[in-house]
C-alpha cells in the first residue's frame, strides 16, 4: 500500500506538468533542493543552505518569522475587511456594526485583524529585544538593524492609523491624544498635524487620510522594507551565531 502510494506521489511530482510549474524535478538531490530555493520567486528570500545552529528555536524564537506571518495575516484579513468598509463618517461606524450583526463571520474577521495587529506590535518589539541580547546587530548586520528600526516605526504607525478606522469613541479620542502630541513639536508641529489630519480637527478628512495611509501607503512601504530586511540577512551571511553557541 505505502509503496504504491509512494510511487503514485513520485509520478505526481515527476511529470511534464509539475516540471513546467516548478522548473525542476522533485527535490530529492541537493541540486534540486538548491533549485527549489533559488529557482522560486518567493522562496529565494531564503539562502540555499543555512547553519544548523541558526535553526535552533533559541536562536530566534521565530520572532522575525512570526512578525512576518502576522503581517501576512493582517494583509489578507485587511483586504477582506475592505470589502465591507467605507472610509466616511459615520458610515465607517455603521460598517463596524454590520460586521458584527449582518456579515456572517464578520466579527470573527474583525477579531482576527485586531488580534493580529496587537500581536504584531508585541512580536516586533520582542524580536528587536531578542536580536539585541543576542548581539544580532553587530557587524556586518548594522544596517539591517537600522532597517529594523524603520520597520518598528512602520509597524507602530500602521497599527495607529488603523486605530481610527472604526470611528467609535475609542478610536476618535485615542487619535486625538496622539495627534495633539504632534503639535508640541517646535515649528513643524502644527503644519505636520494639519497635513496628517487634512484640517485642524479630526473629521472626515482625517479618516480618509488615515485610511489611505493604513491600506495603501504604509503596507507598501512595509513590503519593500521587509524584502530589504530579508535580502540583507542573506547578503550579510546569515544569522548571527554567538561564540558561546559556536562551541556547543
Amino acid at each position: 500500500m505505502s509503496a504504491s502510494l509512494q510511487s503514485t506521489l513520485k509520478g505526481f511530482c515527476n511529470n511534464r506538468v509539475w516540471r513546467s510549474i516548478f522548473r525542476r524535478a522533485p527535490a530529492r538531490t541537493n541540486r534540486t533542493r538548491s533549485i527549489a530555493i533559488f529557482g522560486n520567486l518567493f522562496l529565494h528570500a531564503l539562502p540555499v543552505k543555512v547553519r544548523e545552529k541558526s535553526l535552533r528555536v533559541r536562536a530566534t524564537y521565530y520572532l522575525g518569522s512570526f512578525s512576518f506571518f502576522l503581517f501576512v495575516v493582517l494583509t489578507l484579513t485587511g483586504i477582506m475587511l475592505m470589502f465591507y468598509y467605507h472610509p466616511a463618517a459615520p458610515k465607517a461606524y455603521n460598517d463596524m456594526k454590520d460586521l458584527r450583526f449582518v456579515v456572517s463571520e464578520g466579527i470573527f474577521l474583525r477579531n482576527l485583524h485586531r488580534l493580529a495587529a496587537q500581536a504584531m506590535v508585541l512580536a516586533v518589539f520582542w524580536h528587536m529585544f531578542h536580536v539585541f541580547y543576542r548581539g544580532g546587530y553587530k557587524p556586518p548586520h548594522e544596517f539591517n538593524w537600522v532597517i529594523g528600526v524603520v520597520l518598528l516605526l512602520l509597524t507602530l504607525f500602521l497599527s495607529y492609523t488603523g486605530y481610527l478606522l472604526p470611528w467609535d469613541q475609542l478610536a476618535f479620542w485615542a487619535i486625538t491624544v496622539g495627534t495633539n502630541i504632534i503639535s508640541y513639536i517646535p515649528i513643524l508641529g502644527k503644519p505636520t498635524r494639519f497635513l496628517l489630519l487634512g484640517g485642524h480637527e479630526i473629521g472626515e478628512n482625517a479618516l480618509l487620510r488615515f485610511f489611505v495611509l493604513h491600506c495603501v501607503i504604509l503596507p507598501l512601504a512595509m513590503i519593500v522594507l521587509i524584502a530589504l530586511h530579508f535580502w540583507r540577512i542573506q547578503k550579510d551571511g546569515g544569522l548571527t551565531i554567538r561564540e558561546s553557541d559556536e562551541r556547543k
Partner: peptide, 21 residues
Amino acid sequence: APLEQLANPLLTPNPAKAPWY
C-alpha cells in the same frame, strides 16, 4: 474586538487613552 459608541467630538471620555503601546 471592542466597539464603543459612535465618535462624538463633543463628548470627551475621561480619561482619553492612546493605544496601549
